[in-house]
Design a protein around this nucleic acid. Structure first.
Lengths: 232, 232
DNA sequence: GGATCTGTTTGACATTTATCAAGTTTGCTG
DNA sequence: CAGCAAACTTGATAAATGTCAAACAGATCC
């Protein structure tokens, strides 16, 4: 990959603070590639050969066991995924597939580990990123274990609402079947959960979400910063 | 705390590689303290004032929401907890309470962050620890989302079996109600799950677990290293 | 524009899990 | 050792969630 192929990744917190020469070393060995939708980028259990950066499009992280499959997260531009496996030189715990046509940068894990050893500002940025990831997964576990499926849906809607500048109308950024899987339920169950939220101030028509009564929804959802605020 | 109060913590991977003088700086500001059982050490939402190290005894990490409560993890000697909150200077996401009489070292978070900024070997050790924690939580999420409660119990038993040198008989290291909460079910449900595992080669009497047919149990549990092996 | 495909919704039903209310056991304490 | 409290178990029942099948809707493709 050439130096100025994808200038935007330099501004990622993970790469912002590092030495120029080290960033260039990472970039030199990296590939930029555009993938069609539904391409499996990595498979759980495989060695972590590349750190992935999503430049455009979106990627689903999922996991499988015994013929069951679940969506673990979705990754949107611009962010990295599977940093932990890269740094630890351990097998991926999740698989990844493009949800739509997506452009990615693949940085060889070995290069990342090399720079990690020599550039201590980069090492500190890795800590910050990993701590953030860790806390996100902990929040997600609390959501799963402490809430019913309807409560999870209600809080999910409030989270999008918040990230969309508190708009009262917005689009789901996920197919419903993926949302269902992410929230830990079946599509059928999500369908019914959506219906049962209507009396609490949410209308969902196709991808379009309209909050008709925020107070009602909040009273049902009882959002908590320690579960729903991804910025802390 | 004096230099040689608790020499064993120097050998933790987190502190092993760091400069002597920095380790001493951490120790100087730290407290060693023994707590009785059932003492709430930290409360979720509070600022992360101390990094905690369990020297003896055991600590339960738990989370609450809307009058519900769930066990997130148990911490046993010698390990640290809430490293992520300490490093990010963010509020705790989980509360902690002693399960039995326990001895802890409390290291002021500010000292940890100071040393983190100056000692890059320590910073790298933090990365390693955080990556490990992150991967553990991801595995736990897969366990929760992909398995039924009986499957989670079966795999839990196999994990203890493995960590106990593949002994066919061992004690549960957790009260059943805590185990139930950790596995994401009620005590009653755990009681029934235990009964329903009997035909698959597990007898549980009080705290005593006996595996009577490992092959049967494994066939039911279908353990996977990407969920159950905490060493990778 | 009709045929086809995929995703979504709905209904009927099954299974899993939780709740409530007794009992029973266990372990501690005076 | 009796008495008590807490943990655990059991049964009956309810609620939540999943499964299966079919209908429906929206996109895509000749």
């Amino acid at each position: 990959m050439r130096d100025n192929d994808v200038p935007e990744i330099r501004s990622l917190p993970l790469f912002q603070e590092m030495e120029d020469q080290n960033f260039e070393a990472l970039i030199r060995g990296a590939y930029v590639q555009t993938f069609p939708p539904q391409v499996e980028l990595i498979t759980e259990g495989d060695p972590a050969d590349f750190l992935h950066v999503v430049i455009s499009g979106s990627v689903e992280l999922f996991a499988a066991w015994n013929r069951r499959q679940t969506t673990m997260a979705t990754v949107r531009p611009i962010s990295t995924f599977i940093l932990a496996a890269t740094i630890k030189d351990a097998p991926y715990l999740m698989s990844a597939r493009t949800m739509e046509k997506s452009r990615l940068v693949l940085i060889p894990s070995m290069d990342v580990r090399d720079v990690f050893e020599t550039d201590s500002r980069f090492a500190r940025a890795v800590v910050s990123e990993l701590a953030q990831c860790y806390r996100s997964v902990v929040k997600n576990t609390k959501d799963l274990k402490l809430r019913s499926s309807i409560e999870r849906l209600a809080n999910y809607i409030l989270r999008i609402h918040t990230t969309h500048d508190r708009a009262m109308q917005f689009d789901l950024n996920l197919e419903k079947r993926r949302l269902a899987s992410f929230l830990g339920m079946t599509s059928e169950n999500l369908s019914r959960a959506i219906k049962s939220l209507r009396p609490y101030g949410v209308e969902i028509d196709g991808q379009r979400v309209t909050i008709t009564d925020l107070a009602d929804l909040e009273q049902l959802a009882k959002p908590s910063p320690l579960i729903d605020d991804y910025s802390i």
